[in-house]
Every structure is written in structure tokens, then in C-alpha cells.
Amino acid sequence: MASIIYGLCALTAMTCTWLLLSTYKKTGYRLLFWSGLCFAGLSINNILLIFDRIVFPTTVDLSTWRLVAALVALLPLLYGLIWEEE
């Protein structure tokens, strides 16, 4: 059951990435771009979670890489929220 939930979370994050970046391409609204980059990083984070918990449950610990991916994912959104003007 956990693998299904992890997979659905990854698919949801990838769908959000696609929707945000495609809407940014149409409208040019910069906050959509930063949000899309954030969700792209969160997609990577979810994929690393699948590898950490399902593929390599006992041999490899990817928790540090998952935390780094989450931090890097949030940095573009933080930048966009602070520095971007309308």
C-alpha cells in the first residue's frame, strides 16, 4: 500500500509541475515559473523517497539526499516570493 501512495504522490507532484510550467508558458506570470520549479524539485524528492523506501529499503539510506532535494526545491519558490514584483 505504501508503494501506491508514494507513486501517487510522485505523479501528483509531476502533474503540478507540468500544469504550472505550461500555464507559465501561456501567461508569462513569473510566480508560476518559480512554483513550477519548486514542484519539479518536489517531484525529485518523491522519486528519491520511492527509491529510499521501496527499491533500496535496507541497503542505501537516501534520507540526506531527500532533505537536500526538498531544500533545493523550496529555494526557487522562496526567491520568487521575496524578490519578484508584479
Rank of each mutant, 00 (worst) to 15 (best):
T15P: 00
F56S: 06
T12F: 14
T58K: 08
G28I: 00
Y29K: 15
I47W: 08
G41E: 02
D52Y: 00
Y24G: 03
L20C: 10
N45P: 00
L75Y: 06
R53D: 04
G7Y: 12
T15C: 03
W65K: 07
N46V: 03
S3T: 02
K26V: 15
T12D: 02
G36E: 02
V68Y: 08
A10E: 11
D52K: 07
L78Q: 13
S43G: 08
I4M: 09
R30A: 11
L77D: 04
S22Y: 00
L78V: 15
G28W: 00
T12V: 10
L78S: 10
S43N: 01
W34P: 06
T59M: 04
V60P: 03
V60I: 11
L62Q: 08
P57R: 04
W34N: 02
T17A: 09
V60G: 01
N45T: 14
T58C: 03
F39Q: 10
L8M: 13
G41N: 06
R66M: 13
L71K: 04
G7F: 13
F33Q: 05
I54M: 07
V55L: 06
I5G: 07
E85P: 04
P76V: 05
A13I: 04
D52R: 09
E84G: 12
T12E: 09
L31D: 05
L48Q: 00
A73K: 00
N46F: 07
Y29N: 15
L77P: 00
L19N: 05
T59R: 03
A69S: 08
A13V: 04
A40P: 02
F33I: 01
L71V: 09
R66F: 05
L19M: 06
Y29V: 12
L74Q: 01
W65R: 07
C9Q: 13
S35K: 11
T59N: 03
L19S: 01
S63R: 14
T23M: 02
S3I: 00
L19T: 04
T17W: 08
I54R: 01
L31N: 14
M1P: 05
T17V: 05
L37G: 09
T59C: 04
I4S: 08
E85L: 12
W18F: 14
L62M: 14
T59S: 14
F39L: 08
S3D: 01
T17L: 05
L32Q: 10
Y6S: 11
T64C: 06
L8E: 14
K25F: 15
S35F: 14
G80E: 12
L11R: 10
T64P: 01
K25M: 14
N45L: 14
V68T: 09
A70S: 01
T59Q: 05
N46Y: 13
F51M: 09
T58Y: 10
L8A: 15
T23I: 09
P57L: 00
L11F: 15
G7K: 11
I82H: 13
V72G: 05
I5A: 06
L11S: 12
I50G: 00
N46K: 07
R30F: 11
G80H: 03
W34E: 07
L48S: 06
S63N: 11
